[in-house]
Computed example of a mutant assay.
Amino acid sequence: MISPEQVAEMLYSASTTSKPGPFPTVVPTPTEYQLAGETGHRTLWVLFVAMTITTAVFTLLSWNVPVSRRLYHVTTTLMALVSALAYFAMAAGHASSLSCHAVRDPHRHGIPDTFHDACRQVYWARYIDWLLANGLLLLNLCLLAGIDGAHTLMALVAHTVGVLAGLFAAFGKEHTAQKWGWFTISCLGYLFVVWHVGLHGTRAVQTKGARMSKLWASLAIYSLAILAAYPIAWGITTLARKSDVNTEIIVFAVLDILTKPIFGLWLLISHRSIAESNIDLAGYWSQGLSSEGRIRIGEEE
Score class of each variant (00 low, 15 high):
residue 112 P to V: 00
residue 261 P to Q: 06
residue 276 E to W: 08
residue 108 R to Q: 12
residue 275 A to G: 06
residue 108 R to F: 12
residue 170 A to S: 05
residue 73 H to K: 06
residue 35 L to F: 11
residue 281 L to R: 09
residue 73 H to F: 10
residue 128 I to L: 14
residue 190 Y to C: 07
residue 178 Q to D: 11
residue 239 L to T: 03
residue 16 T to K: 15
residue 94 H to A: 13
residue 99 S to D: 04
residue 107 H to F: 06
residue 243 S to N: 07
residue 282 A to L: 13
residue 121 Q to V: 08
residue 287 Q to H: 14
residue 82 V to Q: 05
residue 42 R to G: 10
residue 109 H to D: 10
residue 235 G to T: 09
residue 39 T to E: 08
residue 8 A to W: 06
residue 9 E to F: 11
residue 225 A to H: 05
residue 172 G to V: 05
residue 256 D to R: 15
residue 167 L to D: 00
residue 181 G to E: 03
residue 32 E to H: 14
residue 85 L to H: 00
residue 165 A to L: 05
residue 182 W to D: 02
residue 22 P to A: 14
residue 31 T to L: 13
residue 246 N to Q: 01
residue 124 W to P: 01
residue 211 R to H: 09
residue 210 A to R: 15
residue 239 L to M: 05
residue 50 A to T: 09
residue 225 A to C: 08
residue 172 G to K: 01
residue 183 F to S: 10
residue 163 V to T: 03
residue 64 N to G: 08
residue 137 L to W: 11
residue 154 M to H: 14
residue 155 A to I: 03
residue 291 S to L: 15
residue 262 I to F: 12
residue 242 K to H: 09
residue 166 G to V: 05
residue 197 V to K: 02
residue 35 L to I: 11
residue 228 A to Y: 02
residue 88 F to V: 09
residue 37 G to H: 02
residue 114 T to Y: 05
residue 175 H to S: 13
residue 60 L to Q: 02
residue 163 V to A: 02
residue 104 R to H: 02
residue 242 K to G: 07
residue 289 L to K: 14
residue 55 T to C: 06
residue 61 L to Q: 10
residue 210 A to S: 12
residue 259 T to G: 13
